[in-house]
């Protein structure tokens, strides 16, 4: 029986408390930090060699789908009644949105050092100590909206621009692909300045602090963001019936992407699962 992933704004007080408790529990056991490391370890940029599975690649969606499922399983071992809610950032667009409340994720970082000081993940409670990071602070950081050079979250129109594309992904299958739903939603734009941030990437920038860097998983909002990104893949499939993950077969010897991306029937590291096997989640969970 499939379980439900809900809009975070629709969670009851009890659901929020149980979700927070499950996060704190797997943080305490060390399981959570393993997820932080796995995400760091699979960040391969497309100007480097080697296989890219998680970012700047067609498997961006299935990789994060499976990553979320693993996290969700860990949470559900702690409390079988929880699931990862999604944050619809086209609607909940301000630091006043319920997800940033003291009963869920806590609010913005303070001005001096961007340290999150409110809510259950504040450093002073001692239950959310950052261990895997690029900087030396051991506290969670946010910089919502980046006041010194403000930018807005992506809009419904921005999103629609990606969802409209009937092709899943296109050559050269990286951050420079200017066609295809995948890169339009992952959000690697051309040029500089705020215009270069699109959709998924822009949300990482908007939250700022840890979410901006390689250690983004330290912020639990990572999962709520990617739950929505996952939902958008499903929405795209519903809008373009029959459209499938691409590429269907691996690039051949001589192609610049040879052995650097995961085709539909190839296994994604660190799992054995293929993109094809992840195209349909309806047996496991559904979005409500």
């Amino acid at each position: 029986m499939a379980y439900a992933r809900k809009n975070v704004s629709a969670l009851t007080r009890t659901e929020k408390r149980r979700l927070v408790d499950a996060f704190l529990r797997i943080k305490r056991t060390g399981e959570y930090d393993e997820f932080v490391r796995i995400h760091i370890d699979h960040y391969v940029a497309d100007g480097e060699g080697g296989l890219r599975a998680a970012h700047m690649a067609p498997s961006f969606f299935p990789w994060h789908r499976r990553f979320l499922l693993d996290l969700e399983r860990a949470l559900r071992r702690a409390d079988p009644g929880v699931s990862v809610p999604y944050w619809d950032w086209t609607k909940d667009r301000t630091p006043a949105a319920p997800l940033w409340g003291d009963d869920l994720l806590g609010g913005n970082g303070r001005r001096s050092d961007r340290q999150v000081t409110t809510g259950p993940f504040a450093r002073r409670h001692g239950k959310w100590v950052v261990r895997e990071s690029t900087t030396d602070g051991d506290y969670l950081m946010r910089d919502l909206g980046r006041p010194r050079d403000p930018l807005d979250l992506p809009t419904a129109d921005d999103l629609d621009g990606a969802l409209r594309d009937p092709v899943y992904d296109a050559e050269p299958w990286d951050s420079t692909s200017d066609r295809g739903f995948r890169n339009k939603l992952e959000g690697w734009g051309a040029g500089r300045g705020n215009g270069a941030w699109r959709n998924h990437n822009r949300v990482h920038r908007w939250v700022g602090g840890h979410m901006l860097g390689g250690a983004s998983v330290n912020d639990p909002v990572f999962w709520l963001h990617h739950s929505f990104v996952d939902l958008l893949w499903t929405r795209w499939q519903q809008r373009h019936r029959g459209a499938r993950y691409l590429p269907e077969s691996p690039p051949e010897l001589g192609d610049r992407q040879y052995r650097r991306i995961v085709a539909r029937h190839e296994a994604m590291p660190p799992w054995r699962v293929t993109p094809q096997e992840l195209e349909d989640h309806s047996r496991i969970y559904r979005y409500v």
């Binding site: 693993d70 296994a267 799992w271 054995r272």
Partner: peptide, 23 residues
């Protein structure tokens, strides 16, 4: 060193809800 994506179906544990162990 580049790691090549292994072909699917050469072992157990595959699938959306399979184990995370791979070949």
């Amino acid at each position: 060193r580049s790691s090549q994506p292994p072909r699917a179906g050469d072992g157990s544990g595959s699938g959306i809800d399979g184990g995370i162990g791979g070949g």
